[in-house]
């Protein structure tokens, strides 16, 4: 067992799948000779050649559409968004073609494509490079949306996404690429539609995903000191949401705090609260608390940026509040 960075775990996943299946290829800006802006495709150009690790011009909507056309006709492209925010330029292709085309075509074509890359709020990258597109894309039918958070789940999930016959939007977080972890020596694949229980507990269910998992776990350390026993669930799959896992936890804790990095309005949490009310209302002791990013373009100034996203102290406070509400 060796410590592996998250970016390298992703690289291993792509390498293993490319060597296993000749139809798997990577395309995007600077994925080839440059090795990827976060080195996720480092050395793969030398190993697999320029057609399988295709450096594209800066033309997001057209190369995304090209990947979809290649997927419709038999390849399994992995399309890298150098920054997932750039894929706003490919919104039409991701929505109309990746998401809806199978249905619109009455099942004529399948679209086994993975669209992956870094998202989330980094460190003072400014508004355009700090987007959380998962919230924008969640309404598109036909897409699967996954957010990895550890080297281990990054590798197992990306391998599953590549093998899946559906279009998968795969979100990595710009601040997590250098997280390190021991990975299993043997090959493993993780299910795309299952949440991951990070910590079991009985007091309150904290639902989170991607980098916010680490903000939550910082808060949990402090909460443990105060005698609380929270359950932490990393959603992993943002579409479809694993309501089996959420339901099982709510039946135990009867309290829910959602911690997300997307904006509050139209966010992932908004959808989850609505569905929890539909499915598990009678199990709740009180309203679900939602901690989201502020509804503003992410500011550059460090102090303002910190105010924009959820901090551990806010999570701590929210858990204490929901626990006191029971007393």
């Amino acid at each position: 067992m060796a410590q592996t960075f998250l970016f390298d775990a992703l690289r291993e996943a792509i390498d293993e799948e490319m060597s296993r299946d000749q139809t798997v290829m990577v395309m995007g800006e600077d994925v080839g000779q440059y090795g990827g802006s976060y080195k996720v495709t480092k050395d793969l150009y030398e190993k697999y050649g320029e057609l399988r690790v295709l450096d594209t011009p800066i033309a997001e909507n057209s190369f995304t559409g090209m990947g979809i056309g290649a997927a419709m006709t038999g390849l399994r492209p992995i399309i890298e968004g150098m920054n997932m925010g750039f894929l706003l330029l490919a919104f039409n292709q991701i929505s109309n073609n990746a998401g809806m085309l199978r249905y619109t075509s009455g099942g004529n074509f399948k679209i086994p494509v993975v669209i992956r890359g870094p998202g989330g709020v980094g460190s003072q990258l400014g508004a355009e490079h700090s987007q959380r597109l998962e919230a924008y894309f969640q309404a598109v039918p036909g897409l699967k949306i996954v957010a990895c958070s550890t080297p281990r789940n990054a590798k197992g999930l990306l391998k599953a996404a590549i093998r899946d016959d559906n279009p998968v939007l795969f979100f990595e977080h710009v601040l997590l690429y250098f997280n390190k972890e021991d990975l299993p020596d043997d090959e493993y694949i993780l299910p795309l539609d299952k949440a991951e229980t990070v910590r079991t507990g009985k007091d309150v269910t904290i639902l989170t995903y991607s980098r916010m998992r680490y903000q939550v776990m910082q808060a949990v350390e402090a909460l443990e000191q105060k005698g609380y026993d929270p359950e932490v669930i990393d959603l992993i799959s943002l579409k479809p949401i694993d309501y089996d896992a959420i339901g099982a936890s709510i039946r135990k804790t009867h309290r829910v705090v959602i911690v997300e990095e997307c904006m509050r309005t139209g966010g992932i949490g908004a959808e989850i609260i609505a569905s929890i009310n539909d499915r598990f209302f009678d199990e709740l002791d009180g309203p679900v608390i939602r901690l989201s990013s502020q509804d503003i373009p992410t500011p550059y100034n460090k102090g303002l940026e910190d105010l924009t996203i959820v901090q551990p102290a806010q999570i701590e406070e929210a858990v204490e509040k929901i626990m006191l509400g029971r007393l």
């Binding site: 979809i68 056309g69 290649a70 419709m72 006709t73 390849l75 109309n96 085309l101 075509s105």
Partner: peptide, 24 residues
């Protein structure tokens, strides 16, 4: 490969089929 309703969106798809031919 389709009937595409928005202007231009079929061109990249057709290009993808062409890429796939060369790739194969």
């Amino acid at each position: 490969l389709g009937g595409f309703a928005f202007i231009g969106e079929g061109i990249p798809v057709a290009l993808g089929a062409a890429f796939q031919i060369r790739y194969r």
